[in-house]
Design a protein around this nucleic acid. Structure first.
Lengths: 116, 116
DNA sequence: TTGACGTATACCGATATGGGTATATCTTGT
DNA sequence: ACAAGATATACCCATATCGGTATACGTCAA
């Protein structure tokens, strides 16, 4: 077997920096492919391919307008990532550092009192 | 070129479901490799390899204890992911849906009033 | 020292990736 | 109908990945 396909889920799709750049640009509003090519500074076929991946995981949506295709962000598709990482948010929170200190103190107290 | 190495950053490391499982287990506290093997139900070498990736991006840290190696989570390494996805949180927030409605209303009003 | 335990590494094979380049497709203007 | 514009797709290649299996390494007990 190999690595999971980039189109497996938002986690995999978003692991690619270029695709995060695309997302950043689209956060500014609907854009045609050409704008993204300019913004990212990479060749058009590459941009189209990244867009395809993002489309398959529904992070972006398309709309035809004449000979152009307007892409827009579908933020909702990023929610699973947010929900996942949010579980661990407390691990780097100041509040958590405090809890850590409290636990340390408790441990010390136990060490002092329990030593016989 | 190929896909970015899994050890490039937390985004890539965490795109693999098994590694997210490992993180979930370690969230419960420090664990030796054997426990993870049991918990994940995959072969030990695979677990060790996933742990290596997580170590390289500093999502986990190790501590030797006799012939065992105790792994623990370093949540802070996940913060960049949280910070990134947090930028887009408003896109699926109820508050944002409301803003959307307001903008729609404004547009309609303009359409009504501006039609001459 | 020997053997058992716990873990890491080496090797193999199949596979999808991402960039590059060329080309196909669709649309608009003349 | 034809050319130009905008975008998607088809190839090619080098590479890292993941699972599988075998084995090496470090530690403990007898």
């Amino acid at each position: 077997m190999a690595r999971a396909a980039t189109t497996t889920d938002a986690f995999n799709a978003v692991a690619e920096p270029r695709r995060r750049e695309i997302i950043a640009v689209l956060a500014g509003g609907e854009r045609p492919v050409g704008d993204l090519v300019t913004a990212l500074g990479i060749a058009q076929p590459q941009v189209s391919k990244h867009l395809r991946v993002l489309r398959e995981v529904e992070v972006v949506q398309v709309r035809d307008e004449g000979r152009r295709r307007l892409y827009r962000l579908n933020g909702l598709a990023l929610k699973p990532i947010h929900d996942w990482v949010r579980q661990y948010e407390q691990l780097w929170t100041e509040r958590f550092e405090l809890l850590d200190d409290v636990l340390d103190d408790l441990k010390k107290e136990q060490g002092d009192g329990g030593a016989d």
